[in-house]
Design a protein around this nucleic acid. Structure first.
Length: 266
DNA sequence: ATGGTCGCCGAGCGA
């Protein structure tokens, strides 16, 4: 089972690029971030015509996540648990950043698709929201770990885990993506026993998933690794490959991110 | 030091 994650930066602008990528790489499951539309605005038909089941959690203009799967999407849930006042008016998290579903191939895998808050500027309320969100994600990981079912958390974490994950780490020193508190919160996830799939496969530096549209970042390979696949122990046992589709970033009208994928014996 | 680029939509915000 091949599972890919891709921050597409707007489905309305990216539909041709996304369908081309899917046709070429044929992932069984695609985890999308920043669809930037309400559910009704998401073009389900092109994906359904390619054999994908579709589940979205959208909002107007910003954020939004989606799951595409050749297997049925079972027990779909939206929103990360733990928001204060969740489900009521005035709840403190109204942003569409999280979706979960179970897919069953040779084994059942719980898929958690996420678009973690950027958090800039830091310090400030946006950074506080990011750290709270990461604490809620840790709590969700603890609950899923207790169930001992294979699961993975995948998406745009907006976290540069270590200096080697940036071409110019000094440029990110005061950024919400790289501040010590951010990296510590990410480390709490891996310390729970979740495996950073790409790092488990290779220690090579210079592997990035995002290059800014500005300042010729792509041309200079001035990138950062912020899109991650974190695997539960039972899921990591099944991994046979993990790679970044770097060439997608070089195409016409690209997203500023590029896909990352894993192959599971499931 | 500043400005540089995208996508959302139709002004400015978020990244």
């Amino acid at each position: 089972m091949r599972i890919a994650s891709f921050n597409i930066n707007g489905i309305k602008a990216r539909l041709p690029a996304v369908t081309e990528w899917l046709n070429e790489t044929r992932p069984d499951v695609a985890i999308l971030q920043e669809i930037k539309t309400v559910d009704e605005g998401f073009p389900r038909e092109p994906f359904e015509d390619m054999g994908y089941n579709v589940a979205t959690h959208g909002q107007k203009s910003f954020n939004g996540v989606a799951l595409l799967s050749k297997y049925p999407l079972e027990d779909v849930t939206r929103d990360l648990p733990g928001a204060e006042g969740a489900g009521r008016e005035g709840a403190d998290d109204t942003e569409a950043r999280y979706i979960e579903a179970t897919v069953v191939g040779d084994a059942a895998v719980r898929i958690c698709g996420l678009y973690l808050p950027n958090g800039n500027p830091a310090p400030g309320p946006k950074y506080d929201y990011k750290l709270k969100w990461m604490a809620r994600l840790e709590a969700r990981a603890r609950d899923l770990l207790a169930s001992e079912q294979p699961f993975l958390m995948a998406g745009d974490f907006n976290v540069i885990p270590q200096a080697e994950d940036a071409a110019r780490p000094e440029a990110w020193r005061d950024d919400a993506l790289f501040l010590p508190q951010t990296r510590a919160a990410f480390r709490r996830l891996t310390n729970l026993g979740l495996t950073d799939a790409l790092r488990a496969r290779t220690g090579a530096p210079g592997l990035y998933t995002y290059w800014d549209f500005q300042r010729g970042a792509w041309q200079r390979d001035d990138g950062i690794r912020i899109d991650h696949l974190l695997l539960s122990p039972q899921c990591a046992d099944l991994m046979t490959d993990c790679q970044i589709d770097k060439d997608i970033r070089a195409r016409e009208k690209p997203s500023d991110h590029t896909p990352i994928w894993i192959e599971l014996a499931a």
